[in-house]
């Protein structure tokens, strides 16, 4: 017998939908208002953004930061998680605990320490977003990448794959690159997309270490121009959407959220 949906359920689902959709609707309405007169409807806010070189510069910076963070994060973590699953299962709780550390050391605390420790390092690191910021973002991305990869590695039989590969004479590098990697591609992709979403939205560390990333630019437009910021907010939401949809479509990783992202 198929039961009908309960009235209570309908009520709470509507409350949730209203709460989560209203700010998006309001932002969309804002984005169509004229910045001079405040009346509807014009596309001038979008035009203003597209013709602002600072927009392209900031979004390019954030995108490159995200790619760099993803590459470094994967290079560090794929061998580690592989090794832990294969040879050092005792280390698993230790690494899992590491993944909870961003809970205790949030970005606002991390940035205090990072600025202090690396203040006197050379400019190519300290004064460059691609040095200092990426170093911090890899730490922020760590739980996202770790949990995705760990789920991926648990789903395959690491031991059998490794033994089969080695009994056929493959080196460690060949085993990792040609046997293991193709099997955890979905998990790595999910971790990468989550990282993309948080890096494209991270404001705390970027603004306090005075780098001009995409969210810092949104805040600048918000403070100085008003309405055009709504076009950027929608774009930012779209980027997060695209990343999550891609994870769902990729099908292997579950879309997830953790603490310590762009809050």
């Amino acid at each position: 017998m198929r039961r009908r949906i309960a009235p209570g359920a309908v009520l709470w689902l509507l409350v949730g939908a209203a709460y989560l959709l209203l700010p998006l609707v309001a932002t969309s309405i804002y984005s169509l208002k004229s910045n001079q007169t405040g009346t509807c409807c014009t596309l001038e806010n979008y035009g203003e953004i597209i013709h602002d070189p600072a927009f392209w510069k900031s979004i390019r910076t954030s995108f490159v930061l995200a790619l760099e963070t993803i590459v470094i994060g994967l290079v560090l973590l794929v061998p580690t998680v592989y090794w832990v699953n294969l040879k050092l299962p005792r280390l698993r709780p230790v690494i899992g605990f590491f993944a909870l550390i961003p809970f205790v050391v949030p970005p606002i605390v991390l940035v205090v320490g990072l600025l202090d420790v690396f203040r006197d390092t050379p400019d190519w690191f300290y004064a460059e977003p691609y040095g200092f910021l990426v170093a911090a973002y890899v730490i922020l991305a760590f739980p996202y990448i770790y949990f995705s990869l760990d789920a991926g590695f648990r789903a395959i039989d690491v031991h059998t794959l490794t033994e089969a590969s080695q009994s056929l004479g493959a080196s460690w590098r060949t085993t990792l690159g040609r046997v293991i990697l193709p099997n955890i591609r979905g998990a790595a992709l999910a971790g990468a997309l989550l990282t993309l979403a948080i890096v494209m939205g991270e404001y705390t560390i970027a603004s306090l270490s005075t780098f001009d990333t995409f969210p810092v630019y949104i805040q600048y437009v918000n403070e100085n121009k008003g309405f055009p910021a709504s076009a950027l907010v929608l774009l930012s939401f779209g980027i997060t959407w695209a990343a999550m949809i891609a994870i769902v479509l990729a099908g292997r990783g579950r879309a997830q959220a953790q603490v310590g992202g762009a809050r």
Partner: peptide, 12 residues
């Protein structure tokens, strides 16, 4: 929505 936070959320 859980990952949509920070400056864009404040503006929304």
């Amino acid at each position: 929505a859980a990952n949509f936070a920070g400056i864009p959320l404040a503006f929304a």
